[in-house]
Amino acid sequence: MADRTTAVTQPRPPAPLREGETIFTALHQVASALPNHLALMSGGAGGERATRITYSQLLEHVERFADVLTLCGVRRGETVALQMPNCWGSATLLLACLRIGALAVPIPQTVTTHQLEHTLATTGASTCVVYDGHHGHHNAQELLAVSARLPDLRHRIVVGDARTTGALDFERLCRDRSGVWQADEEHPHPLPRDTDNPCLAIPDFNHRTPTTINYQHKRLSTHALTTTHAAANSGEPRTPMNEIFGTTYPLTHPTGLTTAIWQPILTAGTSVFPELWNPAECLDLFEESRVTHIAGPPEHWQQLIEEQRRRPRRLPQLCHATTHGSAPAPLAVGVRKAFGIPLHIHPDH
């Protein structure tokens, strides 16, 4: 994996998106111009080294995973549910769904069996990909238990032990896809251009009956760029177009997806996020990666403040801190004292 020290230190941003262009236009531009630039850095839980993925590697994985979904029969317009841990593979699989024009539905691993079944039923998911055995989550068994009551569900795909539940083995599918499409051939899936149609359906489990909120390519890109430009115009010192976006929001949350995927790719930046929430390990990861931005929910910020007071980390490039929703007034004071920068509070979107 490429280290950030080997990347171009001042990458130029992709060209502004034109009508009909999506995040994949920017991804191809950055992967072509800056193949060794660090795209994302994730993990670092339990003392393990964080995984680093360059832009060329990210594009390669997205195309490979898109091939796997195609081999499973997923077609443009169908719904693919993803119940995965907070890791680089989750971000890549989500992009692969969007790459072939499918509607992606990210689902937390912690939902109840009833919530899982309700979400799969109401979204009409034809395929569900789960990661089994991750930190005690046995999502493959739970998916098998509800699958008989889901007539739209055609494929159960498991990362991990697929044999026990009779599901498709994702890792085997990845090995078997060799020869399906070569980089020098015309890709069987043109880049998606339907920027006004939903590409993401994010479940909201804060209600008795879960609901989903749809997001379009245009809405996600516009929000990501607006947020980035707001940071650029905030008057805080920063390094233009070499941003390192850290987030403690999960990849099942709109802000987590914006900060971990859309903002970095649209600005040729780098995404940094933990696999598991742990304030000490999270700050260690942010210190190692030299983040310039941190986004997190209020409860995470409070724990980060306490951890930074306990053992200060050097974050010399950090210039922007954000949270969403309602945050208590003392939180902003705590962020400024612990990290030396103001906390920007944005409304939920």
Rank of each mutant, 00 (worst) to 15 (best):
R4P: 07
R309W: 06
I107H: 01
P188D: 07
E299V: 13
D196M: 09
A31H: 06
V130H: 01
L191W: 06
E288T: 11
Q10H: 14
L144E: 13
E243T: 11
A338F: 10
I202F: 03
A121W: 03
H135M: 04
T165P: 01
P192C: 05
P85L: 00
S271D: 11
G136W: 00
V105E: 01
Q29T: 14
G340Y: 07
T119M: 05
I294Q: 06
G269S: 07
L38E: 06
V68H: 03
W88Y: 08
R314G: 12
A91Q: 02
T79R: 14
D194L: 12
L69I: 10
T322K: 14
A66I: 09
T110K: 11
L143R: 05
A162N: 05
R75D: 05
W262P: 11
N214S: 15
L58M: 08
D196I: 04
N86K: 01
D3A: 15
S326Q: 14
Y131S: 05
N36K: 14
A224M: 10
T164Y: 03
H320A: 12
I244N: 00
L143C: 08
L82T: 08
L343R: 01
Y131V: 07
E306Q: 13
Q308N: 09
V30D: 05
A140N: 11
D169M: 04
T239G: 04
V8D: 15
P108M: 04
G160K: 00
E117F: 02
L93Q: 10
L285G: 01
D204S: 09
N278E: 12
P274I: 09
G256R: 04
I213M: 09
P210M: 02
A102I: 04
P330H: 07
T9G: 15
L257F: 03
D67V: 13
L95I: 12
G20A: 08
F65E: 12
R193Q: 11
T119Q: 06
R314P: 12
T270W: 00
Q182W: 11
F273Y: 15
K337I: 00
N233K: 13
T270K: 04
Q182Y: 10
E63M: 14
L251N: 02
V30L: 08
T110I: 08
G269Q: 02
C97Y: 02
R163P: 00
W181Y: 13
W262F: 12
A183T: 10
R172W: 07
G136Q: 03
P11N: 08
A338H: 10
Y131D: 01
P250K: 09
A15R: 15
T123I: 01
L343K: 03
T119H: 06
S271V: 09
R76K: 15
E117K: 13
A45W: 01
D67K: 11
F286M: 09
G325T: 00
T113I: 05
A145I: 03
T9H: 14
P192W: 04
T122Q: 14
G47A: 11
T70L: 12
A96T: 08
E243C: 04
A167F: 02
A104R: 05
V74M: 06
R313C: 09
Y55V: 02
T110M: 10
A224G: 13
D176T: 13
T209K: 12
H223Y: 12
R4G: 06
N36A: 13
T226D: 15
A91K: 00
I100P: 01
V146W: 05
A332R: 11
L315F: 13
V333A: 15
